[in-house]
Simulated scan of single mutants.
Amino acid sequence: MKPRHKRIALILGGLAILGMVATLVLNAFQSNLVFFFSPTQVAAGEAPKGKSFRIGGMVREGSLQRQPDGISMRFVVTDTDQDMPVVYKGILPDLFREGKGVVAQGRIGDDGVFAATEVLAKHDENYMPPEAAKAVGDAHERAAANRAAAEAATRTIRP
């Protein structure tokens, strides 16, 4: 084999190995990628079906229920616009409270209930995950716009 052919074969071999490594890295990255959705986005059908994702918002007051087995919990995550029922089997974080921010990772079941595999709670009085804060802010803006539209519709000029 001529030196020129050896060089070309070496370059092609190196490119093939580089391509395989890039494919494996991208595949591993994509399988570990978890997106965040608000309850409003989930209700609108934007969340992936059958795939793991994160949902965040506030834990609705009065929604926390301990199940008979003692380690399963049911609660509702809300962005003040939409609610999402969540089921979690395990020990909740110490800072988990009703009315406080939460992010849960899991999947939506066929019954429409979010089955969480991990629950993360806020760590101080002023913290809320940025995605959850944005979702709550967006929901407040939509609610204010809806109230303004309703008030404008009810204001009619009467002779």
Rank of each mutant, 00 (worst) to 15 (best):
E125R: 12
D81K: 13
G99K: 04
P129I: 09
V103H: 03
S31W: 00
P129Y: 12
V42T: 10
D111Q: 09
V21N: 06
A16K: 04
R97S: 07
M20F: 12
P130S: 15
E125I: 08
P39Q: 09
P85V: 02
K2G: 12
D111T: 11
M128L: 12
T117E: 15
R142Q: 14
A148V: 04
F36G: 05
R158M: 14
I108G: 06
A28W: 09
F96K: 07
M20D: 01
A116D: 02
D81G: 14
M58D: 06
A47E: 07
N146D: 15
V136R: 10
E98N: 02
A44C: 03
G106M: 05
D138R: 13
F114R: 05
Q82W: 01
V87W: 02
V34C: 07
K51F: 04
R142I: 13
L18M: 12
V76E: 02
R155N: 13
I55S: 07
A139S: 15
P85Q: 12
A43V: 06
F29S: 14
K2M: 11
A115K: 14
V21K: 12
R4S: 15
K100W: 01
A145Y: 01
T156R: 15
P3F: 08
A9W: 08
G14Q: 10
M58T: 08
A143F: 07
M73R: 05
I108M: 14
V42P: 05
G19H: 04
T117L: 13
D138Y: 05
R147H: 05
A135T: 07
S52P: 00
S52N: 09
L12T: 12
K49M: 08
V34Y: 04
F114N: 04
T156S: 11
D81C: 11
T40N: 08
S72Y: 02
F75V: 06
N27I: 01
R97D: 09
M58A: 10
V42G: 05
D83C: 02
T40G: 02
A28H: 12
A132E: 01
V86E: 00
L120G: 00
A144H: 03
E125F: 08
F35P: 00
F29V: 11
I91C: 00
A116S: 06
M58V: 06
E141W: 03
E118Y: 05
D111A: 11
H123S: 11
E46C: 05
P39A: 11
H5A: 14
P130L: 14
R4M: 12
